[in-house]
Amino acid sequence: MAIFAYLRVSTQDQTTEQQLYAIEQAGHAVGERLVYTEHGVSGKIPAMQREQFKQLSTQITSGDSLVVAKLDRLGRDTMDVIATIEALIARGVSVVVLGLGVLDSSPTSRLTLTMLAAISQFERELIGERTKAALAIKKANGVQLGRPMKINNADLKASAQALLDGGTSWRKAATDLNISLSTLQRMMK
């Protein structure tokens, strides 16, 4: 009966030290070779498409335990989290989520899992809605969204307009001005 730990952070500049510390402080003695860590891997990616989780899945067997610091470390997609945990439970693996307890095949565990995973996805969708609303407000207030133009020179724009008005093609005008065609097109909008 081995105890495995799965740690995941979404960006390369984050660390998993706090997750491992929390697991150890909760009394789970995880062997160094049984800790699987993902750096810079989004929770939106299905668990079985993540390299380290795939490796963990091939090593963990019936009677073993998988410990995670939080449910969202397994993923952000409700259906994927549920499918992942159910697949592990079907193989005889117990899944321990700190602060939540052991998830197994009991009705209480299944209810808890479904509710928490749904809340996690709901929070992610709310963040998306708030982001869209904030961008809409900025756009309504005249803020230029998107990548800024590399070149914002009135003289260059005037030269480009003169070339285009004189019948020069867009591609030739961009070449003559020593800028890319896409930069010319953005500048002339």
Rank of each mutant, 00 (worst) to 15 (best):
R186N: 06
R186P: 02
D176T: 14
L164F: 03
A90P: 08
M79T: 08
Q161K: 10
Q18R: 15
Q161C: 01
Q12W: 09
Q49N: 08
S94T: 14
Y6C: 11
A136Q: 10
T168N: 01
G146E: 00
M149K: 12
K70Y: 05
L135F: 10
I89D: 04
L20D: 09
Q25P: 10
G101H: 14
L184C: 01
G128H: 04
V96G: 12
M115N: 12
V93Y: 03
S62I: 08
S57T: 15
G40V: 05
V41F: 01
R73S: 10
G75P: 04
L111A: 06
H39V: 00
I89R: 13
Q121E: 15
Y36A: 02
Q121T: 06
W170I: 15
W170Q: 06
D77L: 12
V95D: 08
G92F: 09
E86P: 02
L164Y: 00
Q49T: 07
R76D: 01
Q18W: 13
T112L: 15
Q18G: 05
R91V: 05
E125T: 12
A174D: 03
V41D: 00
K44E: 12
G40K: 07
K139N: 13
Q19G: 05
G167I: 12
T16C: 07
D77H: 10
F4S: 09
G27E: 06
L135E: 04
A83R: 15
I127Q: 00
S94F: 08
I3M: 10
L126H: 03
G43I: 01
S109E: 13
P148G: 04
Q55H: 12
N152V: 03
G167L: 10
T108N: 05
S62H: 13
L88R: 10
L66K: 07
L135A: 10
K44S: 10
I23R: 06
A47D: 05
T168Y: 07
K172A: 11
S120M: 08
S42D: 04
T61W: 05
A83Y: 13
K70H: 05
A5L: 08
Q12N: 12
R110W: 14
Y21K: 15
L103T: 11
I89M: 09
S57D: 12
P148N: 09
S182E: 01
E24I: 13
R110T: 14
L56S: 14
R8E: 02
M149Q: 10
